[in-house]
Amino acid sequence: MRLIKPTKRGLYVEPGDFYIDPWLPVERAVLTHAHADHTYRGSKNYLVSKEGERLFRTRLYNEGNIETISYGKSKTINGVKVSLHPAGHVLGSAQVRVEYKGEVWVASGDYKLTFDPTCAQFEPVKCHAFITEATFGLPIYRWTKPEILFEEVNDWWRGNVEKGKATVIFAYSLGKAQRIMKSVDASIGKIFTHGAVERLTRDYRETGVEFPPTKYVGEVSDKKEFAGSLVIAPPSAQDTPWTRRFGAQSTGFASGWMRIRGARRRRAVDRGIILSDHADWDELLTAINATEAEQIWVTHGSIDILVRYLKSIGKDARPLETKFVGDAPESEMAKDEEENQQRINADDAN
């Protein structure tokens, strides 16, 4: 029985009559995480993780009936048992486990296994069918260990301090920005944030995640303060007049796509920082194995490739077509950029 099916509104759990991450308004939605391409406004009832509540409320403009549930706790909707489990993607991100008449399905949402100090660690959930993402579903994607990666970032930052330059890192404003500010060595210098980053970081802080002190760029009157500091901004801020205020600067872009030299060069930044909130190839395979699922449904990213590989090692794997367009690496960035562009415009208006 297909407990979770793709429909034109999103993933649908028929017996429970609810959707997972629907992109059109529905009666009842369960959300995996608060990124804009998973959390759409307009539905009537939302079920979200307790840990992500503040982020969800910000993203949903606090509209609709928003109900929260802690990781591991369950709730029954029309006879379907629903629970959320840490996905390790960003704060409050969850895998959705649904159980009906003894059949268990898990929709992973986006996830990673790498340690992230800003959110709960991914927990494998045993199930009959597992719906996995495949954003980085190619063996060329293997992440550097965070401790090594951030040592490199720290070295680069220190070098820039010596040259009197600001260090400007472009990173998604939800998740990656916070991961960076919590992982770098804050004793090197001050940390400044773009408005979009600062607002979401506030949600993190209010949820109980601790960070070194940060300051919103807009509150700085003396531009000299930026020399030697670290500035964290969304990708859409790159090459805009907004960045001029930092004076001499060295720029970096944080993304899993930076693993590929061509993508690094296209970004035209001084540093490509290979940092992703998605699972790399090895993590995908580890996570899939850990679920012990009989059936693997692959969505979002390198769908065909991961399906083919899983079949070649004897798994029952199938593509799950959703609205998300397959193999769309840098289009993803474009999407994030559009979203952040609106925020920047809003910031500029302030």
């Binding site: 190619l138 063996p139 060329i140 293997r142 693993r259 590929i260 030299r261 061509g262 490739i305 083919r308 590989y309 070649s312």
Partner: peptide
């Protein structure tokens, strides 16, 4: 040496666009 099938190597190469780099990454 990377223990991946040839077809997966070729698809990786497609995504990277540079043979020397693909090998180094795999």
């Amino acid at each position: 040496i990377s223990e991946i099938p040839d077809w997966l190597f070729e698809l990786s190469y497609d995504a990277v666009g540079d043979l020397g780099e693909t090998i180094a990454l795999l």
